[in-house]
Amino acid sequence: MKKLVLMFFVAFAAMAVQAQTETAEAKVEEVKGPVITFEETEKDFGDISQGTKVEHTFKFTNTGTEVLKISNVAATCGCTVPKWPKEPVAPGKSAEIKVTFNSTGKMGKQRSIVRIYSNASEPIEKVALISNVIKESK
């Protein structure tokens, strides 16, 4: 009886190890292709005076295994202007997306979203500029 119980536990342990190995192999396969990894995805400027322009540079690295190609970068409103690299980003290399927000005509809490469209494993990434636009005191 003890041998039967021991054989059962050995067989169960072997199946568990095999399942973990298959899961690890599946995870390795998931990261094939280009991957955008941002240092940060939001920048909060706090209070800014109405009419002020603020800008931030979002730095990213292609942590994938293939060349990253950004096809488009789009902002949620015309008050936010992104500039991005038009050339492909090789695996392991870094690049930047510069975003400028113009608070003219805006008031209160603002969250300007920028969508990055690419051939990455996640085809749409987002970054945001956050601010609270207040009337300029005179």
Results as ranks from 00 to 15, higher is better:
Asp44Thr: 03
Phe38Asp: 08
Lys93Met: 03
Asn102Met: 14
Ser71Arg: 14
Asp47Ser: 07
Ala16Thr: 10
Thr52Gln: 13
Asp44Val: 05
Pro85Cys: 09
Lys59Trp: 02
Ala128Asp: 03
Thr41Gly: 09
Arg115Thr: 11
Ile48Asp: 03
Met107Lys: 10
Val31Ala: 01
Glu55Arg: 14
Ile113Ser: 09
Cys79Lys: 03
Val28Trp: 00
Arg115Trp: 01
Arg115Pro: 11
Gly108Ala: 14
Met15Phe: 02
Phe45Leu: 10
Thr21Gln: 14
Ala13Arg: 11
Thr23Ala: 10
Lys32His: 11
Gln20Leu: 15
Cys77Trp: 00
Ser49Trp: 00
Gly64Ile: 03
Glu30Gly: 13
Thr104Asn: 15
Met15Val: 02
Lys53Arg: 07
Ser94His: 04
Lys106Asn: 05
Glu125Phe: 09
Ser131Thr: 02
Phe60Lys: 02
Ile70Thr: 02
Ala24Ile: 01
Lys32Gln: 15
Lys27Ala: 10
Trp84Ala: 13
Cys79Arg: 01
Gly33Lys: 04
Lys138Thr: 09
Thr57His: 12
Asn119His: 05
Lys138Ser: 11
Ile134Trp: 00
Ile130Leu: 14
Glu96Gly: 12
Val5Lys: 14
Phe8Gln: 06
Phe38Thr: 06
Lys109Gly: 11
Ile113Lys: 07
Thr61Arg: 03
Ala16Phe: 07
Val54Asp: 09
Ser131Trp: 00
Met107Asp: 06
Val31Pro: 01
Asp44Met: 03
Ala24Lys: 04
Thr100Leu: 15
Glu42His: 04
Val133Gly: 05
Lys98Asn: 14
Val99His: 10
Val133Ile: 00
Glu96Thr: 13
Glu40His: 04
Ser71Gln: 14
Phe9Ser: 06
Pro88Met: 15
Glu29Ala: 11
Val127Trp: 10
Gly51Pro: 11
Lys109Arg: 15
Phe45Val: 11
Lys43Phe: 00
Val127His: 13
Glu25Gln: 15
Val17Gly: 09
Lys98Asp: 15
Thr41Phe: 04
Phe8Val: 01
Leu6Phe: 03
Gly92Thr: 10
Gln18Trp: 07
Phe45Asp: 12
Lys3Trp: 02
Gly46Tyr: 01
Val17Thr: 08
Glu42Ser: 11
Asn132Tyr: 00
Lys43Cys: 04
Ile97Val: 08
Val54Phe: 02
Ser137Tyr: 02
Thr41Ser: 09
Ser94Val: 02
Thr37Met: 10
Lys109Tyr: 13
Ala74His: 08
Val10Gln: 06
Thr57Ile: 13
Met7Val: 01
Val35Leu: 15
Ile116Leu: 07
Thr61Asn: 05
Val81Gly: 07
Gln110Arg: 05
Ala90Gly: 14
Leu68Thr: 12
Leu129Ile: 05
Asp47Pro: 04
Glu55Met: 15
Pro123Asn: 04
Val67Ser: 12
Pro85Ser: 08
Val114Thr: 09
Ser49Cys: 06
Ile116Ala: 06
Val89Phe: 05
Ser112Thr: 00
